[in-house]
């Protein structure tokens, strides 16, 4: 069962990657956290978000896009803290 933070991540990433966003997030989770996407917890979020920033940075050099995505991810992280 996908967790709430997993769904939030996919929603945030679909602004950039659309149909490929879920596959992208699943790949980052499996490759960098060595867990299944359904096991993603809030504790894993901070580490994952660093990898997401790096990976999306490889796909586009649009600074405004990267900045907005970064803000969205930070917001997710901050929501978790609160």
């Amino acid at each position: 069962m996908p967790t709430a933070c997993y769904r939030q991540l996919i929603n945030a990433t679909s602004e950039l990657l659309g149909p490929a966003s879920q596959r992208f997030i699943d790949r980052q989770i499996r490759n960098h956290l060595s867990i299944e996407p359904s096991d993603l917890t809030k504790a894993d979020l901070k580490k994952l978000i660093q990898w997401l920033r790096l990976s999306v940075g490889v796909l586009t050099d649009d600074e405004a896009l990267l900045y907005n995505y970064d803000l969205t991810l930070k917001k997710l992280c901050d929501e978790d803290k609160s």
Binding site: G18, V56, T60
Partner: peptide, 8 residues
């Protein structure tokens, strides 16, 4: 129709 910048 796909609402996503990089993919589109």
């Amino acid at each position: 129709g796909v609402k996503c910048v990089v993919y589109r």
